[in-house]
Amino acid sequence: MSEELLADVFFLLGFGVAGLMLPMVPLLLLRYIRPQHPSAVKLQPYESGVVQTTAPRRPFHMAYYNFALVFIVFEVETVLLFAVSPVLRDASWMDLLKAGIFVVLVSDGLFYAWRKGALVWK
């Protein structure tokens, strides 16, 4: 049975190699066709058409990170639900309850974040 999984890996490897090669090979070949005349002005960042006044990559505001935090927690939750959900169809009410408790537990995190205003974009 694990032989079938091994076959999957080889198949996906081949697929992935093809997927990587098809963008990369033209990219390398076209290097010899397309014009390449870099100049100092051309290599400046474009921004919105004006000269850059502030450096990018400066510490940005934290709102993004709040969302990323709640995201990772819920991602783990959904992933575990994926493990459980295929067997739920033929499971008892008791099993459904077990899964429900899990969902409610994690959802509390959402309500906490909501109440604390972490989900407000500012």
Partner: peptide, 23 residues
């Protein structure tokens, strides 16, 4: 292993929060 991955994710979340607070 699944438990381990979950815990690693939680650890990353809390750890990075700490790092940002320290920063």
């Amino acid at each position: 292993a699944l438990v381990g991955i979950s815990i690693a994710a939680c650890e990353a979340a809390v750890g990075l929060a700490l790092i940002l607070a320290i920063f």
